[in-house]
Design a binder for these strands. Sequence first.
DNA 1: CATAATTGGACCGAAACAGTACTGTTTCCT
DNA 2: AGGAAACAGTACTGTTTCGGTCCAATTATG
Lengths: 153, 153
Amino acid sequence: MLKLSKLTDYAVVALVRLGQKEEVTTSPVLSRSTGIPEPTVAKVLKILATQGIVTSQRGARGGYRLAHPLEEISIATVIQAIDGPISLTTCVDGGDCDARSTCGLGGQWDMVNAAIRNALSAITLADMKNHTVTDRLGGLRAPSMPGGPAATA
Amino acid sequence: MLKLSKLTDYAVVALVRLGQKEEVTTSPVLSRSTGIPEPTVAKVLKILATQGIVTSQRGARGGYRLAHPLEEISIATVIQAIDGPISLTTCVDGGDCDARSTCGLGGQWDMVNAAIRNALSAITLADMKNHTVTDRLGGLRAPSMPGGPAATA
DNA sequence: CATAATTGGACCGAAACAGTACTGTTTCCT
DNA sequence: AGGAAACAGTACTGTTTCGGTCCAATTATG
Ligand code: FES
Ligand code: FES
């Protein structure tokens, strides 16, 4: 369905909420604050910690804190942290596509991948918090078509 | 992993190949032409037929034919036909997100969805066909990336 | 009308995903 | 120093989706 995992959804929610707090926050607190089940939010935070998106403080009175300001964390970063690399097709490079020799459109998917990554990298978590992204939407069309094809889904 | 299904990949390959032929084409022929296994390509064509992307002719001497010219079929259309609607998150509208009341960023995901759909709708199957094997990174056709696909995260 | 060719729809196994639970390590408070 | 709180890592299980296969419905041909 071309949907990212629910974990990523939770990750964004947790990160935005974490960015609104200035102190270290524990998983239970974050769970109550966001409504995400505690074990799940804990798992998400753990993954984010390994990826360096949040810093962790172990022990009592510990918790998590954003490693970077909210404005510098893009959606693409979060997705890559949770879901892994953004590669729409299995035959990007070194892929195991069995139709590679006859498919005809060699690595054209890379263009699509770049477009997706571009769009996702242009949105930061701050944009998710504030609703001030309308003016940036103009730059989200990754590959600008000259005439603009009549490709309207 | 934010990857679209392999079926969609096959669908694009099959559609591009189908666009190169002018007559109705059967699944076995298309399979030999693309290298995709016969049952799989048959399934893909079936789905595409139900979505109106290709027209089918049953019975002997039957086959498939493109319903629209290649230039009018966008990647987003194919993805939506195979993988279903492009909704990155489960909580777009009417979603069953259990954290909807407390998550804070109500429907901000719609913005991300729009960005993705925008990028995907800007690329047509004709763009996939018109590939330049010589230099696929620098010599992209009409849809030229702003700064090149340097977003190889 | 019989036959063959081809699509249409349903079925099933496999793999990835989401969620849960447990144990270990680290740090603060008493 | 001792105990408690909180993160870190791993492993397990149920569920969903995906990929592939099989059989039934339909139509041109001779
Ligand atoms: S290389 Fe995978 S479909 Fe072309
Ligand atoms: S509504 Fe689903 S995470 Fe906010």
